[in-house]
Amino acid sequence: MEVPILKQGGYLIATIQAALSDADLIKLQDALVEQVGKYRSKGVIIDVTALDVMDSFATRTLRSIAHMIKLRGAETVICGIQPEVAFAMVQLGLTLEGISTALDLEEGLALLNKRTREREAARGR
């Protein structure tokens, strides 16, 4: 199942809609990294609301996506992690250190806006 990527202003929004296989996640990674450059996006939101499990592979892949996107000059926000999923992740010993997280898409967008403003202000100085 492929993850649809929506281009919205300067951002890319990837909404995961069902449980993903490892191959799907890798496909998402390739697509996002490519499109960030193609559309000169400032930020990426990955909405994982529909994910009922985040195991070590999924977490690692999301982390590499965020790092690659950073290398391409954009910010990543992961949003919509379910309470149960967060609980299982920390029990397993998984964190998303250094990666921004938000409650849902709305919060994710607000966070990206804030980050982008801060960055532009810093550059302008």
């Binding site: 009922d52 499990v53 592979f57 379910q82 149960e84 609980f87 299982a88 029990q91």
Partner: peptide, 13 residues
């Protein structure tokens, strides 16, 4: 619900 997620995660690993 939390335990079901934990079980699913362990199976995944």
């Amino acid at each position: 619900a939390t335990d079901l997620t934990i079980i699913a995660t362990a199976i995944s690993e």
